[in-house]
Every structure is written in C-alpha cells, then in structure tokens.
C-alpha cells in the first residue's frame, strides 16, 4: 500500500499499467470462459432435447403396450424402471407423461395409469418433492399429487396451504378441491394468507369442474381474510345461489369499498332489484367508483324511476357523474 502511495505521489504510473494489463487479461479470460460456457450450454440443451425425444418415444411405446397389449408382462415394468428411470430427467419426463395420460383417460385405463405410477415408484419422488426446501419442487409435488388423486398427510397439506410462496399455496388450494369428497372449500377455515385474484381464477375453474355438490359459499362470508369473503360473494353470483342473497345484502353497506363493490356486482348478476333501494339511501356519500357501479346496476336491473331519483347529479359539480347519469338515461329512453 505504501509503495502504491509513493508511486502515485511521485507520478509513477507504471503500477497502474501493470494492474490494467492484469485486469484486462482477467477480463479476456472471463470472456473466453463465458463463450465456452455459452457453447457448452447450447450443446447441453441440444443433447438434453435429444435425450428427451428419445425417452418420450420409448416411454410412449411402453405406456401404450402397458395399457393396450394383452400380452404385456409385468416384468417389463420392472425392466423399464431399472433401465430407463435412472436419471432425474427420465423421472421428470415419465411423471409428466403419466400425468397427461391420467388426464386424458377415464375408467379402467385411468386406474391402470395410476397403478403404473406407483409401480414405477414415482410416488417416492413426489413425497421427497413435497418435503423439499426448494419451493418449486414443493409446487411440482403438489401438482402431481392433486392430479393423480394421491392423499397426503393433512398436516403437511395445511402447512403447504400457508406456504410463503404463492405458487405453492395455489397448488395446495387446488389439491384440497380436487381431492375433496364432500366439502371442497373446508380448507378455507385454515387459510391464513389472502387469496390473490390469480388464485381465485384457478379456484373458480376447479369448482366449475367439481363433480359433487357445489358448497354453500355463505359459510365463509365471515372469514377473517377479506379476499376470501370477496371470492365467496363472487361465487354466490357465479353459481346462482339465490338462497344466499340475504347474507350478501349487509355488504352493500360495508365500509370496505372492495366488499361493497363485490356485493353490488353480485346483485347485478343475480338480478336482485331490492338492492337498488338500499344503495340509493346512501348514494350521496358514496365514492365515484361505487356511484358508477350503482348506476350500472340500475341500468341493468332497475327502472327509469329509480334512476330519476338521482337526477340531482345533473346539477352537481361532478362532470364525470353527470355524463354517467346521462348515459344511463340514454339507455332507458332509447
């Protein structure tokens, strides 16, 4: 250090030239290493794709024989397991392919596919995945068990339901719905984290595919997570649960705007006219967004007289609301 200081002091820059040359060589070396790495990556990906294609073809033949060849011998399964399920890639591809077959086949073929999954010991990999510290493995594991209909320990499922990663939580939600016999949404009681809209979309889709009786969504209208309540209000409209309208009505007066908006939209979809009178009482104190929702509600399920009670909007200062009112009026007078 002292030497460097002295060099700088006496304007001896030779040391910096040496340093620059050294660093330049390091940079060149790093560039070359990276170029080699890029080429290796390209070769690696190409070779992996080839291996994938090869394994897919072999696997496809094997599964087709397993399913449809009457002379299929059980020892072939053992042979396949011992010879072609050695690497992680092979195990991953096999699991993925079995999941596709499982999705596409029903009845006896589906039972056989499930049996094959266990015969190949793929369940062991899945259980390892579920307990992995890596979130993407936990997600993959959950996806597999819910697709294959494999039950896992309740405590583990609940733990994953409240995982810190939203991807894991989503798969846990789907697991509970897909594997439930009677009460697909009972897991909501144990849900600590809020539901994102992305998760709600998946849940709604899973519920639409649910073959048993759709649950009574009003059970969770008192849930501590606001997102769960909003989801249930939406589903009451989606599944036309008219019997639950009375339980949604109080949300029209909720101080929480999101809840109020969900309730108004629910009323609109279900066509519950009585909601309009409740909403008109407090119209003046509502936010612009809620006022717009109410006007939309009147336009769709109300009548011209109800709209006229809001004609005061025309003399107010809010230009946006004036136009919204006129648009609604135009709708009735058309």
């Amino acid at each position: 250090m002292e030497q460097i200081y002295e060099n700088i002091y006496y304007n001896d820059w030779e040391w910096i030239v040496k340093l620059n040359i050294l660093v330049s060589f390091v940079l060149i070396l790093l560039s070359l290493i990276l170029i080699l790495f890029i080429l290796y990556l390209r070769l690696f990906k190409n070779s992996r794709n080839l291996k994938k294609a090869e394994h897919y073809s072999r696997l496809s033949d094997f599964i087709n024989n397993y399913l449809f060849d009457p002379d299929f011998d059980e020892t072939e399964t053992e042979n396949f397991k011992n010879n072609f399920l050695k690497t992680n890639l092979q195990k991953k591809i096999t699991t993925k392919e079995i999941l596709i077959y499982n999705q596409n086949f029903k009845g006896e073929a589906n039972d056989s596919i499930k049996k094959l999954f266990f015969s190949l010991d793929l369940d062991n990999i899945v259980f390892k995945d579920l307990k992995s510290l890596k979130w993407h493995r936990r997600t993959r594991g959950l996806y597999t068990v819910s697709s294959m209909g494999i039950k896992i320990q309740e405590s583990l499922a609940v733990k994953l339901l409240n995982d810190k990663r939203s991807e894991v939580r989503l798969q846990a939600l789907l697991y509970f719905i897909k594997l439930s016999q009677k009460y697909p949404l009972n897991f909501l009681y144990r849900l600590e984290e809020p539901l994102t809209i992305w998760q709600q979309v998946y849940l709604e889709d899973a519920l639409k595919k649910y073959e048993e009786q759709v649950p009574d969504f009003s059970k969770w209208l008192t849930h501590k997570q606001q997102s769960v309540v909003i989801f249930c209000i939406k589903q009451i409209a989606v599944f036309n649960q008219y019997e639950n309208i009375d339980q949604v009505m109080p949300f029209l007066e909720s101080p929480e705007e999101e809840l109020k908006r969900a309730a108004i939209r629910c009323m609109r979809k279900i066509g519950h006219e009585e909601a309009i009178d409740v909403l008109l009482t407090n119209f003046a104190t509502e936010s612009t967004e809620i006022k717009k929702e109410i006007l939309k509600l009147i336009t769709q399920i109300g009548d011209f007289n109800q709209l006229q009670t809001l004609s005061g909007l025309l003399t107010g200062n809010d230009e946006e609301m004036k136009i919204e009112y006129l648009k609604a009026e135009e709708h009735f007078l058309k």
Partner: peptide, 16 residues
C-alpha cells in the same frame, strides 16, 4: 416459475 406446470386453458376461459 416458467417451468412450473400450469393450466393456462383455465385462465383463458375464466370470466374472472
């Protein structure tokens, strides 16, 4: 995230 299994079809049919 990109490599995770997903059911995009569900998303594309959703009214949500």
């Amino acid at each position: 995230i990109y490599n995770l299994p997903s059911e995009e079809v569900a998303m594309l049919q959703s009214s949500t």
